[in-house]
Amino acid sequence: MRGHGDLRLVAALALLCAALALLIPFTGVAAIFAVPLALLLPGYAIAAAAFAQRQLEWALFFVLGIALSLAILILGSLLLNYVGGIHPLSWAALLVAITFVACLIAARRRGPTDRGPRWPRPRPGALGTILLLGGAVAAIAAIVLSASTVPSGDAIGYTQLWILPQAGTKGHEAQVGVRSQQQASLDYDLRIKIGEDEVVKRSFRLAPGETHVVHVRAPAGSEGVLPVIATLLRHNRPTSVYRRVKGSLVAPQEPR
């Protein structure tokens, strides 16, 4: 690839981007390297290989770079599906390999003269740069705002109540969860019956988005499968059942 500055740059960038995208543990930073690796460099290299002996307009080259990269991702996933599976490492290896091979073909087909596209070098000036930056900042602010949660006073709040067997206890234990999705902090009363006995009676207050979990287990000396009923009441309405769920517990077998 001697003499073909753009191809050497593309090949080196592909390798660098692949390594950094895989090594950097921060998603946002890794994306800075993964996006050109996935969405530009392979397509650029293929377009360079295909049109090695022609001088394409930069805009045409650019759009082919993106579209061919997308095509490589689509067809590449199909290839990886049958060759070892779709893994981060296999993606990186495939994209780097395609970029390298296409750059080599492009260099060989071009011959000694450089026929890479001539990219424009716009010079917007100081004011133009400030305006462009202003536009970019406004767009970023728009996206940040869209990803932010805002108060929604008219949204009707509610509370979740659930009962599930505790993982890894073979059904001997269960967890009863209460999660508030209310607009304001509320007081609750939670009552849990195992069989005929009310074994839990708890009052607590939950802020919006808070969770309260209670673990229960089959009482000693019990036998068989025991029904569990969890009832949630709101503190200000003690006689009205707010939520009720049902589960079961398996009594542990006593050692003989």
Partner: peptide
Amino acid sequence: GATSALMGLTGM
């Protein structure tokens, strides 16, 4: 398939 490339490479 194309999206999985970015997901895999970055964890996004």
